[in-house]
């Protein structure tokens, strides 16, 4: 047959040796084992702790429905905290978004400052902020909202400023060539290009915040977490299970909603 591929007679070229990959895998496995040993990781404890676990599990199978109705207001409080905190954080992030984007902020000092603030904020976990604000403004949802605000501010500013740096400079050039001033470039070419990203990241942060807001109660910063903490401490596993199931449902629902919204924006 003419023109078909024929297997070559000579030896095939060999790929470069893979020993480096094997060595890396081995090293990683050794590090894992060493860490577990050093921390005293003991899977036996799972067995010895199976008593409370079984009780919790059984409680999951027969949740306390009337109690669920009673915690519903706390669930709404949690969602309200997330909505308020996310919105405030998003609004606060607006100036920083642009200050932290090199292509629209030529001033190096402003750029560095904005980047620095963002990076420091993002190293601090939400729970720590919550504890901090509880100490500042006392127990209750206000502390939680403030914690979520600061946390959202960090994420939204970081993600969106990266979106600003990735915009197409073409339209800016075209407007500039046509005699537009800087504010016009900004409002006519920059903002329309990053608005979808901003909204999408804000919704994404909201998803994270609903989840996070359920935990903030552990340090007394309001929301459903306060009740969960109490139930666990009083060993009321049926109530704890009801709360966890409810959180599960609400988080899933909100994620589904937010994701469908985000898909429509993209």
């Amino acid at each position: 047959m003419k023109g078909t591929l024929k297997p070559p007679e000579a030896a095939l070229p060999r790929p470069p040796r893979a020993y480096k990959r094997w060595a890396s895998a081995l090293l990683f496995a050794a590090a894992l084992v060493a860490s577990g040993w050093h921390l005293g990781l003991d899977f036996g404890r799972l067995v010895s702790g199976s008593g409370p676990m079984l009780r919790l599990f059984r409680a999951f199978l027969s949740p306390n429905w009337p109690y669920m109705l009673k915690v519903l207001p706390a669930v709404f409080e949690t969602i309200r905290m997330a909505v308020l905190g996310t919105t405030l954080g998003a609004l606060m992030s607006v100036p920083v978004i642009f200050a932290a984007a090199r292509n629209v902020t030529p001033n190096r000092f402003v750029y560095g400052l904005a980047r620095g603030v963002m990076n420091v904020l993002r190293t601090i976990p939400e729970l720590l902020f919550a504890a901090l604000f509880v100490a500042l403004v006392g127990l209750g949802p206000t502390a939680g909202i403030l914690a979520i605000t600061v946390f959202s501010f960090g994420i939204i500013a970081k993600l969106t400023s990266e979106a600003v740096e990735a915009i197409d400079p073409g339209p800016l050039e075209a407007l500039w060539a046509g005699g537009a001033s800087r504010p016009v470039l900004f409002g006519y070419a920059v903002v329309p290009q990053v608005l979808p990203a901003f909204i999408s990241y804000t919704l994404y942060t909201f998803e994270i915040n609903v989840r996070a807001a359920t935990v903030l109660g552990l340090v007394g910063a309001g929301g459903i977490g306060v009740m969960l903490n109490t139930a666990m401490k009083l060993l009321q596993y049926d109530k704890a299970a009801s709360i966890i199931l409810l959180i599960f449902a609400v988080v899933l629902l909100i994620e589904a909603l937010s994701q469908s919204l985000r898909r429509r924006i993209a």
Binding site: P171, E173, Y188, P192
Partner: peptide
């Protein structure tokens, strides 16, 4: 490259 704001 036309340089339009593609989303508008």
């Amino acid at each position: 490259s036309f340089n339009l704001v593609r989303r508008m």
